[in-house]
Design a protein around this nucleic acid. Sequence first.
DNA 1: TTAATGACCTATC
DNA 2: CGATAGGCCATTA
Length: 108
Amino acid sequence: MTAFEKIYDVVRQIPRGKVATYGMIAHLAGNPRWARVVGYALHVNPEPGVIPCHRVVNRFGGMAPAFAFGGEQRQRELLEGEGVAFTPDGNADLAQCLWNGLKEGELS
DNA sequence: TTAATGACCTATC
DNA sequence: CGATAGGCCATTA
């Protein structure tokens, strides 16, 4: 079991209409310092379509435009299609769509 | 096994 | 306030 597997598992649990930050995923994966490793894991993205890379963003709600899966514009469309709100800055609205770390229905 | 890379984050000048 | 440098951890060659 590599760290990637844990990261993929966490990213896969991100509910539709929500977004998670690298730091958060790293924390949920088990290590708060895996922020870079998370980016690397998504970079290889061994299971496209299963791992929602577009739901993973940095703390600003955006990501590297040149290394994005299909372009920053593409990501915005995907997130909007899932119901994610966006800010005038062109980033995901972390204030409303930031994943709290719990799955839909895991609420007490 | 050693060295190099990386979709990050934080602190400092 | 804006930009730069460094540090962290795991994976790959």
